[in-house]
Simulated scan of single mutants.
Amino acid sequence: MNQEVVRLTSVVKTYGGERNRVVALDGVTMGFSRGSFTAVMGPSGSGKSTFLHCAAGLDRPTSGSVVLDGHELGGMSEVALTRLRRDSVGFVFQAFNLLPALNVLENVTLPLRLAGKRPNRAAVDAIIERVGLADRRKHLPGELSGGQQQRVAIARALVSRPAVLFGDEPTGALDTQTSLEVLGLLRESVRFAGQTVIMVTHDPVAASHADRVVFLADGRVADELSQPTAELVAERMTHLGAFAAAGVA
């Protein structure tokens, strides 16, 4: 269970030319163990989204190494990267990104069909039941609440049994109660199914559901917190904001 499913080593990501160069990530090194739940936080412009894109193979770092599910991403072709993301990575975003003309079952199984795989009906039914939508499988997205649509997105992300699930503000569009339900579902997938979850969030309450919180500031790892509480996370974020504003972090 301690095997790392994602490892970034000295990752640098810059944008622009020499005159307008922006350093989004500045030597980030961190690992994520299999079966763990990590929240990534930081002030606006700290590099959270760039980190997620590099860690998930959506963007290539300027320098440094990213290893995802045993694969070094640096030397992989775009075709190989696409295949790896399809087979080993699940994504859950703030926008649910469901196809409105497809029902719950069809949206959940879409990644398998696009990959040319025949869905295992029993396994798909088990995932839909796990996210609490067994009686909604024939409903269209427009007939579901926001929380139910995010549950569909989580089921779709888990259906291919990915090595890691990346969440980008997955509760950002949900009310407080629904957010807690979705976070509980992610927590459950880690605890009972051994899923690895890496979630970018700005919400201390959301982060408190993780095993660990990693804080970024100015593209660097500025702090880390194990067994977080919402109060501790909020306090660290306040300090990070002050450090970032002062150019210290």
Rank of each mutant, 00 (worst) to 15 (best):
L110E: 11
L84T: 09
A115V: 06
V124T: 13
R86P: 06
R118L: 01
L110T: 12
R83A: 15
V104P: 08
Q94N: 09
A115S: 15
E106P: 09
F93G: 06
L102P: 15
R86D: 06
N97D: 08
G116V: 04
L112Q: 15
N107S: 01
R113I: 02
L105N: 05
L84N: 13
N97Y: 11
R113K: 09
N103K: 07
L84D: 11
Q94H: 08
A115K: 03
G116T: 04
P119C: 03
R113W: 00
N97T: 01
A101P: 09
L98T: 08
S88E: 15
F96P: 07
P111M: 03
L98S: 11
G90K: 05
G116H: 09
F91H: 08
P119I: 00
R121F: 00
L84E: 08
A123G: 00
F91V: 03
Q94G: 03
R85N: 10
V104W: 06
G90L: 03
R86S: 14
G116P: 10
Q94W: 10
K117C: 01
L114Q: 04
L98G: 10
N107T: 06
R86M: 11
Q94F: 01
A95I: 02
K117F: 00
A123R: 14
V89A: 11
L102E: 06
A101Y: 12
A122E: 15
